[in-house]
């Protein structure tokens, strides 16, 4: 029988590092990442699950970390924007975002990159329409998405 708890010690692997922390059952995964683990690359842009700035990949699934409780991530493996590059080198997606001016203020960028990564992991040669559908859950108020779509397309081409 799993007894109800208001608080629990959870163990989570984020970008290859395992963390153990006490969390209240009510704490959202995004606040766990930002406030408890100090991984502030994942952002909050709304309070209704619409904007996608908090998108992360949990056990291979792209999701919005403001609509998952931290306690639900116990035992999970999480990828965030901080894990995209390797040894200070930008990933081809990060590089393409910069080259194609796919970011202005940069606030939506971490979530946008995670959505783009999830797309390319599964579909290395997406069409423009597929790219637009893949980032539909990520709001950007700066770019009109033009250069974001271009950057993802370029990153896909570069790696195929």
């Amino acid at each position: 029988m799993s007894a109800p708890v208001a608080q629990k010690t959870i163990s989570v692997e984020v970008n290859g590092t395992t963390y153990e922390r006490d969390v209240e059952a009510r704490r959202l995964l995004v606040h766990f990442l930002r406030d408890d683990l100090d991984l502030t690359g994942t952002h909050v842009g709304c309070d209704t699950g619409n904007c996608g700035a908090c998108s992360v990949i949990v056990d291979g699934t792209l999701l919005k970390s403001c609509m998952m409780l931290a306690i639900q991530a116990d035992g999970a493996s999480i990828e965030t924007v901080e894990g995209l590059g390797t040894d200070g080198e930008l990933s081809s997606l990060q590089q393409a975002f910069s080259e194609h001016h796919a970011l202005q203020c940069g606030y939506c960028t971490p979530g946008m990159l995670m959505s783009a990564k999830a797309l390319l992991d599964e579909n290395p040669e997406p069409t423009e329409g597929e790219i637009r559908r893949a980032i539909q859950g990520n709001i950007c108020r700066c770019t009109g998405y033009v250069n974001i779509v271009e950057a993802i397309s370029a990153a896909a081409e570069a790696s195929t």
Partner: peptide, 21 residues
């Protein structure tokens, strides 16, 4: 954005879920 206090359980069967509810 911030939830009120709440308890949490993750049952492993329908029966367990029903009895929790």
């Amino acid at each position: 954005m911030l939830l009120a206090s709440v308890e949490y359980a993750c049952p492993g069967s329908v029966d367990e879920a029903l009895s929790l509810l």
